[in-house]
Amino acid sequence: MSTTRPLVRPDAGAVRRPQRRPYGRTSRRSPLRQLGKGVLVALLLVFTLFPVYWMLNSSLDAQAGHTNSFWPAEPTLEHYVFVLTEGGFGTFLRNSLLVALGTVLVSSALALLASVAVARFRFRMRTQILMLVLVVQMVPLEALVIPLFVQVRDLQLLETLIGLVVVYVALALPFGIWMLRGFVAAVPVELEEAAYLDGASWGRMFWSVLLPLVAPGLVATSIFSFITAWNEFIFAMTMLGGATENYTVAIGLRSFFGVHSNDWGAIMAASTIITVPVMIFFILVQRRLASGLTAGAVKA
């Protein structure tokens, strides 16, 4: 297990060191307490999983929309076939994947460079820049739909995936800088100094010392950018306009709903197709995500 940990995980000390036992399981284990806990866990599971389960259930039931049953009354995969062929979700998935990956790549790169600047250097206006990043994070981008629409139009990027990537990078960047900054700051300066003493150039130090150490942070910010791009709705709706072939999953689903608003089986199948990849990905990276959040956003 221990080998799976990154070299420096900001919260590692707190969690691993045995003499500082963390808040957590109490030694008291009265049966009543256990029962109460069980009930709470059950309620929580129902609340979190019911929509997911109901989505899956309807998507697999040929009777969905006609009769409700708690398992598929007439199991079928026809809804999936329908949405992937006629529904065009194959294309939508591809588009979303391209947009999300493009966003991750560009925003992570920019955020990393910027976070190194603010975490490692003292320069005039540093505070102001930090303030700017924070304030910008507070601006509801949704309020900027109109000017951004005009902006992207002026760049001749309306109805293109690149246009969306450009906007999503702007959406993801402030949070990315803010989070990565925590990670960069947590890398011991001594390591860098050691690299310098060995005669390494700054660039080399960046690649061989800093980058590997902030990799977990990059993973966390990447997840955030990915999700931002995958889920985003209002910009995709306004900027892709009539370019159906460039629709992302979010507006692809809306446009599908517009035509098949009563075909709940198919709508749920489409929803599942959109959700499940992210879900699996999320469950796989949940440890990373948690450490990323605490290190970056919280321990700022």
Partner: peptide
């Protein structure tokens, strides 16, 4: 992927 995105978009 980004290169493809450029081409596709």
């Amino acid at each position: 992927a980004t290169t493809a995105a450029c081409a596709g978009g």
